[in-house]
């Protein structure tokens, strides 16, 4: 078991005065089988009271609204999380013989339709269809997913600054480069194309090995392995997730999990946002 102290900071600067603003942060780790949040502490430079509610998937959204005038907003949160390895990480994944059968059941597909349906971010169009590996019948899903991650490493280079938060899986395959959310969108598209339910996960990566992560938050996916449940995989680092992965939220793609969304009233379109995350083990 690890106990982490995470600080998330966002600093927004605006060239013109903002007269009204509303911001949704999705930065609080969730509570699940492997992790529990023991303390949270918010602060913001406008001294507005943070409001929390749950989104459609049941994850916490922290909202800040103000009608004070400002040209900068600092928001920070300090969180303590206790984390242990998920159960699936202890047991060796051995495929059940009827995995393929489960995937093809209409009721199974219906129960997980959200994570089987392509979205704008996770659509791979005809031009790139040939890049999608097709799972052989009988091959265990977990084996196939590892092959997929190897395959994606051949298609996409980890590279900062070549994509944005709007870049779709199709575009990533054109650019042949991107960061964690881009790897995840390509990975999601390929899993779903093979009928494996897969969901986008945002969270924090405690990075003792110097793996790829972004300045702010990390992204990976969870695939549904019949008989086991949802298992985390990180395509950017070509590995299964472990005790170092602290989950915040999941959804169908980036848009459901964006750490910060905001709408402001101001006269200039420019703005600068810096995210800063630190993770320490206590």
């Amino acid at each position: 078991m690890n106990e982490y102290v995470i600080t998330y900071q966002a600093q927004n600067h605006y060239p013109e005065v903002v007269t009204e603003g509303i911001f949704d942060f999705m930065v609080l780790p969730c509570n699940d089988d492997s992790q529990v949040v023991t303390a949270t502490e918010f602060s913001n430079s406008l001294e507005e009271q943070a409001f929390q509610f749950k989104n459609v998937y049941g994850f916490d959204v922290t909202r800040l609204r103000t009608d004070k005038k400002f040209d900068a907003l600092d928001f920070s949160v300090k969180i303590k999380v206790r984390k242990r390895n998920a159960i699936s990480n202890h047991t060796k994944l051995t495929a059940s013989p009827d995995e393929d059968d489960m995937l093809s059941q209409p009721d199974f597909q219906l129960d997980h339709h959200l994570y089987l349906t392509k979205t704008t971010y996770t659509n791979i169009t005809n031009g790139h269809r040939s890049l999608i590996p097709i799972k052989e019948k009988g091959m265990p899903i977990s084996t196939f997913i590892h092959e997929l991650m190897d395959h994606i490493q051949d298609l996409v280079q980890y590279q900062k600054g070549v994509t944005t938060v709007q870049t779709t899986a199709d575009q990533v395959l054109d650019i042949k480069g991107g960061v964690c959310q881009d790897f995840t969108h390509v990975f999601l598209a390929m899993c779903r194309y093979n009928g494996i339910p897969a969901r986008y996960v945002s969270g924090y990566l405690n990075n003792p090995h110097g793996n790829h992560d972004d300045e702010s938050m990390h992204a990976w996916l969870e695939a549904l392995i019949p008989g086991y449940g949802w298992v985390g995989y990180d395509a950017a680092n070509r590995c299964k997730t472990d005790i170092n992965y602290i989950k915040v939220a999941h959804g169908v793609d980036y848009r459901d999990c964006a750490p910060l969304k905001g709408v402001i009233k101001t006269n200039s379109l420019d703005q600068k946002t810096e995210h800063n995350v630190t993770i320490t083990i206590q």
Binding site: E20, I22, F53, R65, D67
Partner: peptide, 9 residues
């Protein structure tokens, strides 16, 4: 839309 706003749901 601009005549309305949301505060604490």
């Amino acid at each position: 839309g601009r005549d309305l706003f949301v505060d604490k749901n």
